[in-house]
Write a protein that binds this DNA or RNA. Sequence first.
DNA 1: AGCAAATTATGCCGTCGGAC
DNA 2: GTCCGACGGCATAATTTGCT
Length: 293
Amino acid sequence: MTNLLPAAPRGRRNTSTALALPDPAVDKLSKARHDAFLRARGIDPNGPFQLEIWPADMREMPNDYARSALFTVRNKTEPRATFETSLIFHVQKEVKITYTGVELRADDDELVWQQILDYAKHKPLGEPIEFNLHQLCVDLNWSINGRNYDKARKSISRLKANEVRVENERHGRGVALSLIREYAFQGDGDKGTKYQIWIHPGLITLFAGNTSTRVQWEQYRELTPLARRLFDYFASHKAPFPLKLDTFKGMCASSCSIERKWRSMVRKACEEIRLAGLVKKAWVDDDLIYVDR
DNA sequence: AGCAAATTATGCCGTCGGAC
DNA sequence: GTCCGACGGCATAATTTGCT
């Protein structure tokens, strides 16, 4: 569905490799460790970096994001919060994510970003990708109307206006980047529909090796936000440990204050991912969420 | 009048609180 | 546990308005 994009330039038609290492103050030791990390995963640390081309019916997300509260689930009556270098909840203690910007929700931002990455996979990271809002809405299965165009515009703007800092021991160094590095559009900001987007090459760190998760897009994009986050967790593990109800609540940054209510919502989400055919079985027992894939 | 665009009405959805 | 309602976003239908 990305036929408005040119075919992937596979060759080594290089843009400046200086782009590849944007951090001016990176010390040699940390760079060496990071280079080794990339090399060990078959990636030339000098770039150019390109996402692996996953199948057209799938989308991909870094595990470090999938298991964190970067994308939240809250009632839409609750206004989006603003964060400034706030520590974002993460299931694993050894991963530290610090976020600055407007709260991103699983309801829209998560899907929009995944779709944009799908456009981006055809080119080396750092090169502009082009699409229009009609295409985006079709790919998200959002109906084509002005409101959804506006929703997409706002989402793109939120994805641009943030800083996500990920520190994971395994990476060899931390990365701080914005989910969208830069974008341009044609025409009026409120009405433009043709977009150009640049993704930061540093994002490759989060995808390097076996550190990201692929999901069946058709089913995934239809999930309710809560079910989507639940599946994010299960999908990102080969053999998922049972997840504590409370941990999952942290992962969603939910503001639900009634324990029983939370339990019942999660049970519904379990049923939903089962019905979607994404898992064999998912259930809540005592304070744990189990899955059978 | 004839048509399309704009506006309004109606009903559904997901999260969350609360009643029983 | 089930059920219902508030809330605001959304789709769709029904209706009005504006233009030629």
